[in-house]
Amino acid sequence: MNIVVCVKQVPEPTGTNKIDPNTLRIVREGVDAVLDPADEYGIEAALQIIEAQGGTVTLVSMGPDRALEAIRRGLAMGADKAIHITDNNLAGSDALTTAKILAAAIKRENPDLILCATESSDSYTGMVPGGIAQILDLPQLTFARKMTVADGKVTIQRQLEGGYQTVEASLPALVTVTGSINEPRYPALKGIMQAKKKPVESLTAADLGLDPNEVGQAGAKERVTGWKPAEQRKAGQIVKDDGNAATVIADFLASIKVI
């Protein structure tokens, strides 16, 4: 089984992001960056499959040079190798360009299974995985909270608003996984040491046959024209419970005619 997992480095998700008022882009300098926690589920799922059935896990990531740290973390969890697409021309790429780049890199690996998170923690468009599937002409099974791979087929439980669906497709296929699918392992010291020696292939857009003028900000089909801070709600009445909190809350509910 040959599995590709798409992983991304993102600004520390619990931090607060800032916009650069000049470029209207997210400020990434001087901000802690990590392997997207959402991607650890895909890596874990891939590792569990190859531990049971044998095979290779390849990480594919597009991002600046320092994204290598996030890739190394994924390798430390146990992935075998990685492809890092890094190129100054790629800054400001939109979801579709990202999908094109990743698809071109994935194609070289000819995988049986491609795993992505349902959405990234920083841009959360959720558009990249479906774009990859469309470009590579593969079926896409999404929002998996359970997954089994057997007999050339992948079967998932697909999370829904109020329930789930069982969905199946023949391999090769692309699957997006949610945080309910597993408990990602923590890289062990041995894994961290080994990760330093695992192969990471570095590629540019041109290496993948993409025109540098059609990627990055130049190729993006969305334009930010302005921004403003969102209006925030203001604090109302704060009370300390001295035994009559239930009365205070019930009075409030009555005042807004809920009871």
């Binding site: 774009g131 469309q134 993006a220």
Partner: peptide
């Protein structure tokens, strides 16, 4: 929605157009 997002992602790549989410 779950289905809406899946359709939009593929459509985005088919049409090669801009997509504005959220």
């Amino acid at each position: 929605t779950y289905d809406g997002r899946d359709v939009a992602a593929r459509l985005n790549a088919m049409l090669g157009c801009g997509v504005i989410t959220d």
